[in-house]
Nucleic acid binder design. Sequence first.
DNA 1: AGTGCGATTGACT
DNA 2: GTCAATCGCACTA
Length: 207
Amino acid sequence: MAAVDQAIDSGYAAIARAALPVDTVKLARWLIGRIVVHATADGVLSGRIVETEAYPPGDAAGHAFRGRTPRNSTLFEEPGHAYVYLAYGLSFMLNVSSEPAGVGAGVLIRALEPLEGIAAMRRRRGVQALRDLARGPGRLTAALAIDRSLDGVDLCRPGPLWLAHGPADVPDIGQGPRIGLSWEVERPLRFHVRNNRFVSGPKALNR
DNA sequence: AGTGCGATTGACT
DNA sequence: GTCAATCGCACTA
């Protein structure tokens, strides 16, 4: 059975685009607790989103701020597309486009709680500690085998990479300033599951 | 055509 | 706590 079908059978039905809030900040909060699924030739890799950051329209810290270019083009797609780029020459970042077509904005996925394919993630990352597999935006893309070849993929369709609903329980969500920016640092656009050990950043920010 | 740097990570003092 | 690695791409000329 193909990995995609297998993943759907195991409960990873894709989230419909109509279910996504069409607002970057609302989407950033809404994505907490949802699941990222990547069906690879080696099997399904998945994780629950525990940390996000919003990069809304007009945000000077956002990649879309200076207009549409070949690199950031996916940010201007309909909501629910994967914008993947390389940061610092070594880490890929996974974002979800978040505004109507033509408007450039997105949500950065910053941390996942590993769910399926943990052995493969350990192999890919070269670390054993479960907590460190996907705690950080560059780490989670390494763990889930996400790179630029997945830029532009529709996350609202099953395969190869998509979003699925999580468990029914509603996580306790905290909100604070974004991490790693020299601009716009004062706005509370980072969301995280409170006191969750899979969230990145200093402990003081995660309560 | 050349230059500077980033939504980070991992190794090291 | 500090700091180098590493490269695609946007910006300047």
